[in-house]
């Protein structure tokens, strides 16, 4: 199995939109791409992870304007059930061309909703743009709260940005305090359901992106499908992004491959071990 999935092209990219970059996690790829698609009528709305009543707890919502898109900038690192809004978007909001962003498992769910739309009436033919984000794992809200409040010693309300990268979990507060934790500390708070996931770079998205492989402030972008190629090409032509060839940036594709291999190898082991979890009894394998 190719750990990076099928793709047509890969580049290092950054948005040219200053407003988006102000609060983006890395290169502002997702927000810029959706803003362009919305403006051009490629999508008429998008299911995104927006703010909720609890600090740093994301809540899925349907954005139909640029102003709403901007609310979803940045990575939240805890669970946001995007797919719960997918049918809402088509049936309650009446959208005909839906954009959706998600981590690999959510992109898998989106593709399953298209091919096996068991309970997804009016969804399969109305998915217009699927953008995936690289993901190693996420935390349940309470797990993340524990990491930030007990381990990093910061109030969730005061946190401006969180980052996972270079083996560290970094918490940056509004007042500028930076606390770093080794990932060794945070591993045990990961969502258990993530440990059977065999996809790191959202292999089935139209376009997938994440910081890994590119310099700070830039993102690595895989263009995977014909839809992805079409939208990405148009957005590039419209000047939405500046790009660099992936083989000319550090740490480059090697790093993406390394992390993808690590994740998939580790999780495949978990899947295999589940086959002998009890005494002569297996835990169900969802992939067979």
């Amino acid at each position: 199995m190719n750990v990076l999935g099928k793709y047509k092209s890969v580049v290092s990219a950054r948005s040219t939109d200053k407003e988006i970059l102000k609060a983006s996690q890395d290169g502002g790829i997702v927000t810029s791409l959706f803003a362009y698609a919305l403006e051009q009528g490629i999508i008429d709305g998008a299911v995104l992870a927006g703010p909720s009543s609890r600090p740093w707890q994301p809540q899925p919502f349907v954005a139909t304007t640029r102003a709403e898109l901007l609310k979803a900038r940045g990575t939240k690192y805890n669970i946001c059930p995007q797919i719960s809004m997918l049918k809402e978007a088509t049936r309650s909001y009446g959208l005909d061309k839906v954009g959706i962003v998600g981590v690999p498992c959510q992109i898998q769910a989106t593709r399953k909703a298209q091919l096996y739309p068991i309970g997804m009436r009016d969804v399969p033919d109305k998915i217009a743009l699927v953008v995936g984000i690289y993901c190693m794992e996420v935390f349940p809200y309470k797990g993340m709260q524990l990491i930030v409040e007990d381990h990093a010693g910061q109030k969730l309300q005061s946190v401006k940005k969180m980052e996972i990268g270079k083996g560290k979990f970094t918490v940056i507060t509004e007042r500028g305090n930076v606390t770093q934790l080794p990932l060794k500390v945070t591993h045990k708070y990961e969502q258990p359901g993530c440990h059977v996931c065999l996809d790191y770079v959202a292999n089935t998205a139209d376009v997938s992106t994440g910081s890994v492989g590119s310099p700070d402030g830039w993102s690595t972008v895989f263009v995977r499908s014909r839809i992805g190629e079409d939208v990405w090409g148009k957005a590039m032509a419209a000047g939405c992004f500046e790009t660099k060839p992936i083989d000319q940036v550090k740490p480059g594709l090697e790093m993406v491959t390394k992390l993808a291999t690590e994740k998939i190898t580790k999780n495949q082991k978990t899947v295999d071990e589940r086959a002998h979890f009890g005494v002569g009894k297996a835990l169900r394998n969802p992939y067979i």
Binding site: I79, Q106, A113, G119, V196, R284
Partner: peptide, 30 residues
């Protein structure tokens, strides 16, 4: 019993969207 209890749920929300009677809500992502 076959997903949540077996440690497979990752909180995507597909179930909540699929439910025809809106019996499923996502609480803290589950």
């Amino acid at each position: 019993q076959e997903v949540i209890n077996l440690g497979l749920c990752m909180g995507c929300g597909s179930c909540a969207a699929a439910c025809p009677v809106r019996a499923i809500t996502m609480e803290y992502g589950k």
